[in-house]
Design a protein around this nucleic acid. Structure first.
Lengths: 233, 233
DNA sequence: AATATGAATAAGTAGCTACATATTTTTGTC
DNA sequence: GACAAAAATATGTAGCTACTTATTCATATT
C-alpha cells in the first residue's frame, strides 16, 4: 500500500475490511468507535466516517447511532444493475436499432395495474406494446402502462418517432424505481412477436417508477432468448 | 420543505434533482460549479459535494475534474439487488430450511471454469452440487466451483453441516462479485432434482467472487419456478 | 416494581480551510 | 502553424471544529 493510500479514505476502508476478512472482527462483532479507529490509524474521524459509509453502502457493516458499528451478521451480496434505455443498449452492442409500435390505447386502469399504482380503477392509463429490434431481430418486448394522472402530456407523444421507454426516461425522471426479475415460459402471442417457440424460457424485468407517491409507469420487458443481465462493477 | 431540510445535503440534493426534473437543467447540460451552487443555495461547498456524490451514485449526473458536472445524457435505471444466503432467505419467508448435498468432488478445473477463473486447467478446484430446500420443496439448486488455490482450507469443510454457500460467505468475504442473470429451460437431470417438468423456465443467477485478483468461487444458482428477484429499495 | 427522566454516548451533519489531481485552455517558442 | 509548457479551473480529498440526533443506560420518582 503506497504512502498516499495509507491515509486516504480508501486506505482506511481497506484496512478495516482487511480485519473483517482475516477475522480480527467477526460477523456480529462490534467495531471500535470511529474516534478510536481514527486515533489508531492516525487520521481524522471524518476520514473514518467516509470509509465506514462506504463499507455500510457495500453491505459489509451496519451502523447505528449510539449502537456503534457492527460487522453485518448475515452478509448479503449486493449487486448493482445498470438498466439502460433499450436503444442505447442495442447501439452499444453495435447493432442497428429499430422500434415497432405494436399497439397503443387509452382507457381505465385494469385491476392489476390500478393495484400496482395504488389508484382507483377509474384512473386513466395509457397502454403501449412495443418491440425494440436489434439488427432486425426482436430484442425486447415491452408492455407498458402509463398513469395519465401523473403524465397527462403523454397523450400527445408521437410514439412512431420516440419509444415510450425513451420519451419517459428523458422527460420524466423518477424518484423511486421498483424492479422485479423473473423467468417465464412465453405465451403463444408473445412468442410470435419475439420469433421464438411458444413456451421458450424468457427473462422478464418488471419495473414501476414513481415520482414522490405518484406512479409514472409500469413496464414488463421480455428479453430475447439467451439474454444475460449483468453487473458492470 | 422544512427550514432544517433546506440546507441539509438531502435538501440540496432534492433541489438540484428538482431542477433536473423540471428541465431547468436538461440531459447533457452542464450544471453550475459546486462553488456557485453553494453560494446560490447558501450552504458550504462540502454540502454541495455530498449532494452531488449522491446524485452521481444514483446515476443522475456525471462528474469530472475540471470538466464539471453534467446531467447524464443517457439516463440508466440503477437497481440494487440484495442477494442473501439461501438459508436466510428461506427462513425470512417463514419456511423450514434444509440442505441436501448432491455431489462433491475435487479435480482439475474443466476448461470453462479455468477460463472463468483466469487459471490454468491444472489448477485444483472443488465441485459441489447442492439443493437448498424450503419447507421440504426445492428452492435453489446450486452448482458451485471453488478454487482450492485460493481457498485450500475448503478441502476440510464438512458440507453435511454447513452449505458451501454459507461457509464461504462467512469465511471468505470477497472484494469483487460479478453477477449474471438469465432465464433458461431446465434440462432433464436438473428438472428431476428441482421437481419440475423438463424445459420449465427457470431464473438462474451466476456469480463469481474474487479476492483481489484471485478467484474464490463460481456458482450457478437455479431458482424455483416462479421465483422473483426484487430490489429492496 | 414499573415507569419516566435525564445523562452519556456514538454516529450524522454542516461548515470551514487547505491542498491534490486531473483536465482544459492559454501562452510561448520554434 | 504545430507543439510543448504553464496557468487556470473544477472536482476530490483530508483535516479540523461544532453541533445534532438517536439510542442506551442509569437514576429517580411514582
Amino acid at each position: 500500500m503506497s504512502d498516499l493510500d495509507r491515509t486516504s479514505w480508501q486506505g482506511i476502508r481497506d484496512q478495516i475490511r482487511e480485519r473483517i476478512l482475516d477475522s480480527t472482527y467477526r460477523p456480529g462483532d462490534k467495531l471500535p468507535r470511529d474516534h478510536d479507529i481514527a486515533a489508531e490509524l492516525e487520521c481524522a474521524r471524518s476520514t473514518v466516517q467516509r470509509a465506514m459509509r462506504s463499507l455500510a453502502d457495500d453491505g459489509i457493516v451496519e451502523r447505528k447511532r449510539k449502537g456503534g458499528t457492527i460487522v453485518k451478521p448475515d452478509p448479503v451480496t449486493r449487486a448493482v444493475l445498470n438498466i439502460p434505455i433499450a436503444r442505447i443498449e442495442i447501439e452499444n452492442r453495435g447493432f442497428d436499432y429499430r422500434h415497432h409500435l405494436i399497439s397503443q390505447d387509452i382507457g381505465a386502469a385494469p385491476p392489476a395495474i390500478a393495484a400496482q399504482f395504488g389508484l382507483s380503477q377509474a384512473s386513466p392509463v395509457a397502454h403501449v406494446v412495443a418491440l425494440h429490434m436489434a439488427a432486425g431481430r426482436p430484442f425486447v418486448l415491452e408492455d407498458r402502462w402509463i398513469s395519465l394522472d401523473t403524465v397527462p402530456e403523454f397523450r400527445s407523444v408521437d410514439l412512431a418517432e420516440t419509444s415510450a421507454n425513451e420519451w419517459l426516461v428523458r422527460h420524466r425522471p423518477y424518484s423511486r424505481c421498483d424492479v422485479q426479475i423473473h423467468a417465464t415460459a412465453i405465451d403463444a402471442d408473445d412468442a410470435q412477436l419475439m420469433g421464438v417457440a411458444p413456451g421458450a424460457a424468457m427473462l422478464v424485468l418488471e419495473r414501476t417508477t414513481w415520482i414522490g407517491e405518484k406512479p409514472i409507469t409500469h413496464v414488463k420487458a421480455t428479453h430475447a432468448e439467451g439474454y444475460r443481465l449483468m453487473t458492470s462493477s
